[in-house]
């Protein structure tokens, strides 16, 4: 009996934990994007175009390849990067802190500036639209 109760409590804790993390990272980005009056939603098409846009030396596709269903490779260190499309890698875009950390770093690497909420939302929308 006691054991069942313990398992129940553990399950409740795990559920609460996963619910706390379950907020969609795109929701927060969308809230930020809406502060711009001109905002009219995200576009997968614009996201796809941004993916290929070359900044200083690189584009997103330099490391992540032109097919986000495939694994990429860090252009400097050679480290394999898991696919960015949730169709191939469901863990993508499930953790807001991770999403923001990588957008910040990688947009600075590629475009020498941080990306706007519009750009981030467009890219996520595109990557999520890709079928397996």
């Amino acid at each position: 009996m006691k054991r069942t109760a313990n398992i129940g409590a553990l399950a409740a804790m795990l559920l609460a934990g996963s619910l706390a993390q379950a907020a969609d990272p795109l929701a927060a980005i969308s809230t930020a994007a809406r502060t711009d009056k001109a905002f009219s939603g995200f576009s997968a098409e614009r996201g796809a175009a941004l993916w290929e846009r070359k900044g200083k030396d690189w584009s997103c596709s330099t490391c992540h390849t032109t097919d986000p269903r495939q694994a990429g490779r860090h252009t400097v260190t050679g480290k394999v990067i898991k696919p960015m499309a949730p169709a191939s890698n469901p863990a993508r875009f499930t953790d807001s802190a991770k999403v923001e950390k990588w957008f910040k770093r990688n947009c600075r690497d590629v475009f020498n500036r941080e990306c706007t909420a519009q750009e981030k939302g467009d890219v996520i929308t595109w990557l999520r639209s890709i079928k397996p």
Binding site: V76, K101, R105, D109
Partner: peptide
């Protein structure tokens, strides 16, 4: 870390 061998590796 924000200038880490040519890339931005900044952390909280």
């Amino acid at each position: 870390l924000d200038r880490h061998f040519g890339t931005d590796a900044s952390l909280d």
